Amino acid sequence: MQLAERLRAHPWLAVACAGALVGITIGLFLPIRAASQSKADEAKWTLPTPASVKRFDEAKYQALRRAPFWGEVKQPGERGQQVAGWSLSGIVTRPSIRAAVTLPGKRETTWVTLGGALPDGATFVAANRDTIWYEKDGCRRARKLYLLPKAQSDACIGAKGEPAAAPSGTPTPPPVTSPAPPPARRPH
């Protein structure tokens, strides 16, 4: 009696139980069939001809080799251009932007202000918390704080006077601006 009263009160419960029972019965007696192979899988695969996969173009290689960002390419055994011998050992942005530069073998640190000359004759043009940007030989370059100079660190990242197209991972120099004065307070 109690079951019949519940089924009358909740007819959706009876329908759900009946549907589950029918689904289980069908699932037990019908086998699962494997999917048939498509016609595309039956096609034979062959290697492409060497002419169709030409990977080397001499003209493009020579154009890349002559690119200015590589510097002068030397033959094996020849010595390349020596890297600037100074390293960046500190950056101060307030009250004025300055960079501490250290020469190898010397203990003293030289402070260079924005627009000043670095030890190799380059001009200090911008700085942020861990990088300075300088211009030398008509080319903009970047140097990271505390890293020893390498040939890659003196690579050209932009023409002098133009916005630098920085390589990936190198932020573009921020514009040099002075902070805005604090807003004036009125007495209450």
Rank of each mutant, 00 (worst) to 15 (best):
T170N: 01
R79W: 03
T49H: 10
K106G: 00
D154H: 05
L88Q: 06
Q75F: 12
A165H: 10
R79Q: 12
C17S: 14
P163D: 12
P76W: 02
L47G: 02
A159I: 03
R107M: 04
W45A: 12
I26K: 04
T113W: 02
I157N: 01
K74D: 05
I24F: 10
P119Y: 04
A126Q: 13
R55V: 08
T102N: 00
H188E: 04
Q81S: 04
L7N: 04
G115W: 08
P187G: 09
E135C: 05
T109P: 07
A166D: 03
R8I: 06
R55D: 05
C17D: 12
S178F: 08
A4P: 05
A84M: 00
A34N: 09
K54N: 12
W12N: 02
T49R: 11
V92R: 02
F56T: 04
T110M: 14
L88G: 02
R107P: 02
M1Q: 02
S38T: 07
R141D: 02
H10W: 03
A99S: 11
P68D: 15
G115F: 04
A16Q: 03
L64W: 11
K54E: 03
D154P: 01
A117T: 10
A180T: 14
R98L: 09
A84F: 07
A166Y: 03
A43H: 01
W70A: 07
W86E: 05
K74R: 06
P31L: 12
L7I: 14
R33D: 11
G71H: 01
K144S: 13
L145A: 00
Q62F: 02
A155F: 00
L145F: 00
Y134S: 04
K44N: 13
E72Q: 05
G161E: 10
R6W: 00
A20E: 05
Q37F: 09
R94I: 06
A127S: 04
K74Q: 07
R107V: 11
W86A: 14
V101E: 08
S87K: 09
L88P: 02
C156E: 01
A166V: 13
Q82G: 14
R107G: 08
G85S: 13
V92Y: 06
L103Y: 00
R65Q: 10
E58N: 01
V73W: 01
K74E: 06
I91V: 06
T93M: 14
D57W: 03
S96C: 05
H188C: 05
S96F: 03
C17V: 08
G158C: 12
A166C: 15
A63G: 09
T131N: 14
V125M: 15
I132L: 14
N128D: 11
A122T: 01
I91F: 06
F69S: 06
A9P: 12
G19E: 11
I97Q: 02
P175M: 14
P104A: 14
T49L: 07
R65T: 15
A165V: 15
W86I: 00
A40T: 01
V92I: 04
I97M: 13
L103C: 01
R107K: 08
P187A: 08
A180M: 07
I97Y: 08
Q152W: 09
V176W: 05
E162I: 09
D137T: 09
P119A: 15
P175F: 11
G23S: 13
E42K: 13
V73I: 13
A165Y: 01
R8N: 08
A59K: 08
F56N: 06
G105R: 00
